[in-house]
Amino acid sequence: MKSLYTVLLLTISNLFMTFAWYGHLQFKKYAWFSTLGIVGIILISWGLAFFEYVFQVPANRIGFDENGGPFNLFQLKVIQEVVSLTVFTLCAVYVFKTDKLGWNHLVGFALLVAAVYFIFKK
């Protein structure tokens, strides 16, 4: 169950991270946001990043093997990267609609799956 909570919390965390890091690039579509200066955009991004950490910190604490979780640090990091790239890809293609998924992305994701395999191999 801790594995599921860890991945779920990391997924929610990465939704906030994606919008904190890349969401402001979509602000030009909205009149109010397009008038903000860089300081305003940074403050909004920091506000979103706060919620990223609200979910990310408990995910890692729950999932870490020295806290009774199922994952070591390497495993937690690889899970986070795969979740991050998955969430980012879905947002870029379906929410931001800025990019299309290409064959090279699929090859890259296959290599990430291979990385997960090797990191989890005992």
Rank of each mutant, 00 (worst) to 15 (best):
K2C: 06
K2E: 13
S3V: 03
Y5M: 04
T6W: 08
T11E: 02
I12T: 01
I12D: 00
S13A: 15
N14Q: 12
N14L: 09
F16P: 05
F16T: 06
M17T: 04
A20V: 00
Y22T: 05
Y22P: 01
H24L: 12
L25M: 08
Q26N: 12
F27T: 05
A31W: 08
S34L: 05
S34Q: 13
G37H: 05
V39E: 03
I41W: 09
I41A: 10
I42C: 00
L43W: 02
I44R: 00
I44P: 00
I44V: 08
S45L: 04
G47N: 08
G47D: 13
L48T: 00
F51W: 07
Y53M: 00
Y53D: 01
Y53I: 01
V54H: 01
V54C: 07
F55W: 12
Q56A: 11
Q56W: 08
A59D: 06
A59Y: 02
I62S: 08
F64A: 09
D65P: 01
D65G: 06
E66M: 07
E66G: 05
N67S: 12
G68T: 09
G69T: 05
G69V: 07
L73S: 14
L73M: 14
Q75S: 07
K77I: 15
V78I: 11
Q80K: 09
Q80T: 08
V82A: 11
V83C: 10
S84E: 03
L85Q: 02
T86M: 15
T86D: 04
T89H: 05
T89D: 01
T89I: 09
L90H: 00
C91E: 02
A92V: 01
F96C: 13
K97M: 10
T98I: 14
D99P: 00
D99V: 10
K100V: 13
L101S: 02
W103K: 13
W103H: 04
L106N: 07
V107N: 00
G108P: 05
G108S: 09
A110C: 06
A110F: 07
L112E: 10
V113Q: 06
V113S: 06
V116C: 14
Y117N: 11
F118W: 13
F118T: 06
K121M: 14
K122W: 08
K122N: 13
